[in-house]
Design a protein around this nucleic acid. Sequence first.
DNA 1: CTGACATTGATAGCCATTCTCATTTAGGAG
DNA 2: CTCCTAAATGAGAATGGCTATCAATGTCAG
Lengths: 145, 145
Amino acid sequence: MTGDELDDEIAALLQRADQRYTKGRRALVAALRAAGQPVTILQILDAADGLAQSSVYRNLAALEEAGVVTRVITNDEFARYELAERLTEHHHHLICSMCGDVFDFSLGARTEASLDKALHRVADDAGFTVEAHRLDLVGTCPRCD
Amino acid sequence: MTGDELDDEIAALLQRADQRYTKGRRALVAALRAAGQPVTILQILDAADGLAQSSVYRNLAALEEAGVVTRVITNDEFARYELAERLTEHHHHLICSMCGDVFDFSLGARTEASLDKALHRVADDAGFTVEAHRLDLVGTCPRCD
DNA sequence: CTGACATTGATAGCCATTCTCATTTAGGAG
DNA sequence: CTCCTAAATGAGAATGGCTATCAATGTCAG
Ligand SMILES: [Mn+2]
Ligand SMILES: [Mn+2]
Ligand SMILES: [Zn+2]
Ligand SMILES: [Zn+2]
């Protein structure tokens, strides 16, 4: 997906949610894109400057609501954000339990498919409606080893 | 694992961590065992009465440190706890995105094994040391549908 | 241009969790 | 059974990531 296509898709998503694609929101998207991995609010504020903390929180919430961005849950106390899978691709996370850093990884199509099948079976048995699955690998990153 | 075996194992884990198996901690373990699913601090306080909130927080931290208990990460703002897998068995979680409730499920040995293999391959490639994996199914529970 | 309304940003408030500390408890030595 | 000492307890204060507020600013249709 080129930068322009991405921007068009984001604009459409925001429009559908009655939200404007403002300067601050563009800056957020750019920061997330540049990071290439889930980042904390503090990291965003450090990287892209001129952003007000309160606006970052509010806009990330707005972007999440519109489906542009996803909040990534980890073990530490800081929320992390990344571009939503609809704008990138389905993937999973390596989480370093020492420094908290989060990296992306993907399973092969074959593994992913059989996992998905197993999960749908589980969900059916439990009477659950599946929205998504989340697979994290928790460990120690090379830098912390 | 019988109740006595469980208690012995817990006592050993606590001893190794220089912690006592006190009345309050026994009450916590009993509450987690009775619940049979990850529970919030509030749920613990409601179920087992006579426990001081501050002690529950402190003791859950101590039990986690000793490896008796695990903090379960979900989407909502409340921490949940369950007995550690070393005292039960490896499993995963169904998370209701409406009410926040969490339920256990297991994959078949075959699926789990091939997943584990794929994950170790990923970890090796990334230079990660694997501690654990976490697989959650997010959706809507029958009660909330 | 002008009104209506969304967005912004500084700041105050919220609340789950953690910290503090005086008091109580419990296990070991004698 | 005492002491003695260190761990544990519990009520309350403090912390800190996040959210709500609201006056000021920006945006766009008419
Ligand atoms: Mn990611
Ligand atoms: Mn569980
Ligand atoms: Zn690390
Ligand atoms: Zn539910």
